[in-house]
């Protein structure tokens, strides 16, 4: 089944930032960021996405990626 992949962990490594640091910067609980990071989230608010992009200095496309059927 096709899905949206969240590359938050990849961006965190690139920016050398921990999840705790990010949670402090974007004012979102670690548990919510973990839900997002593990791909369990059903939806993401624009405000959250904007805050994460601002904190990581990246584009939404760097965090979210469309994965078609059969792709890994």
């Amino acid at each position: 089944m096709d899905s949206i992949k969240v590359n938050l962990d990849l961006m965190l490594v690139k920016r050398e930032m921990s999840l705790t640091e990010l949670s402090e910067k974007v004012d979102i609980t670690i548990s919510n960021l973990s839900i997002l990071k593990t791909g369990k989230a059903k939806a993401i608010r624009f405000s959250t996405l904007r805050a994460i992009c601002k904190a990581l200095d990246c584009q939404p496309g760097d965090i979210l990626e469309y994965e078609a059927d059969g792709e890994k």
């Binding site: 979102i28 919510n32 960021l33 839900i35 997002l36 369990k40 989230a41 059903k42 939806a43 993401i44 608010r45 959250t48």
Partner: peptide, 8 residues
């Protein structure tokens, strides 16, 4: 409700 809970 589940969707709301899993909305970040």
């Amino acid at each position: 409700y589940q969707e709301l809970k899993l909305t970040v």
